[in-house]
């Protein structure tokens, strides 16, 4: 047993002890923020120490500090990959897919027949491994971001459609009657009553789709891409056993995923402040 391993167990026990005391004694917002952050820091330290202590080959598991320095060193490359995959591929596909699903949901909402046909199919399609469409789209639209965009569109379309249709089909009879007594037109009822009350479902769809979009854009690059992009970098650097670079890319993906999700959650808070789930 060397020093690093002793430190590893020491930090583990101290961290465990401190967190269990903290979480038992106090219950404020500060603790709610502090405990998980502390856990994260302890986890990173333990990772670093076990890599040092057991002399783990960096080809298998690089230490967090190595990943961090690689991240800072390679920021220009990471930025190129980020714009290629996440901005051009994922974001464009996300906007196109969610937007078209939203509009189509409003259109088919008028026809009960279409709704009854599309909802079960949409639910079914949501469970399918759509990522498998990636090679086909790469063949159709070429290696560049257009094919990734197409994969993302197909991936996000049905979850978004199903959620929006479900949101629109929640009908509060008394509110609709009230709109009728105001002699509101279809469009007025749609914009002033039904769309706002469907918003919690719409945002739920947007949240689910944000992860799907990232996955679609990255995995589609495994099937063919130009010599940039996160999926390309991950698969090629894995082949060269440069795992610190792979972890740096994963860190970028995780950060982007969290930030985007947080952004949508913030918008949700702004637009659906009236919903019970948003009130404390």
């Amino acid at each position: 047993m060397n020093l690093y391993l002793w430190l590893f167990f020491g930090i583990w026990i101290i961290g465990w002890w401190l967190n269990s005391i903290l979480s038992k004694k106090y219950n404020s917002n500060l603790i709610r923020f502090f405990v998980p952050t502390f856990f994260g820091i302890i986890f990173l330290m333990m990772w670093e120490l076990i890599v040092l202590g057991l002399n783990i080959n960096p080809v298998l598991l690089p230490a967090p500090t190595a990943i961090g320095s690689k991240f800072i060193e390679e920021i220009p490359t990471l930025w190129i990959d980020f714009t290629q995959t996440l901005i051009k591929g994922a974001l464009s596909g996300y906007i196109l897919g969610c937007g078209s699903a939203f509009i189509i949901a409003i259109l088919i909402d008028k026809f009960d027949f279409l709704k009854r046909g599309l909802l079960p199919l949409g639910n079914f399609v949501s469970a399918l491994p759509i990522v498998g469409m990636a090679p086909i789209f790469v063949m159709w639209f070429g290696f560049d971001w257009e094919s990734k965009c197409a994969v993302v569109v197909v991936m996000v379309f049905f979850p978004m459609l199903v959620n929006t249709v479900q949101g629109l089909s929640i009908i509060d009879k008394s509110r609709q009657d009230l709109m009728k007594t105001y002699s509101a037109s279809y469009l007025q009822t749609l914009f002033k009553l039904r769309l706002p009350s469907a918003l919690p479902f719409v945002f739920n769809g947007l949240k689910i789709c944000s992860t799907l979009a990232l996955i679609g854009a990255i995995v589609a690059e495994f099937f063919g891409s130009p010599i940039k992009g996160m999926g390309f970098r991950i698969s090629s650097e894995v082949g060269r056993f440069a795992l610190d670079m792979v972890w740096a890319e994963i860190f970028v993906a995780a950060l982007a995923g969290c930030l985007f999700y947080g952004f949508i959650a913030l918008m949700e808070k702004q637009f659906t402040f009236w919903h019970p789930s948003q009130q404390k």
């Binding site: 967190n19 903290l22 979480s23 502390f38 856990f39 990232l214 995995v219 995780a254 995923g257 969290c258």
Partner: peptide
Amino acid sequence: LSLMPWVIASQTVPILA
């Protein structure tokens, strides 16, 4: 308190990568 926020955050990460 320590794990749940990370479990939820990990849902937003493209793990498949």
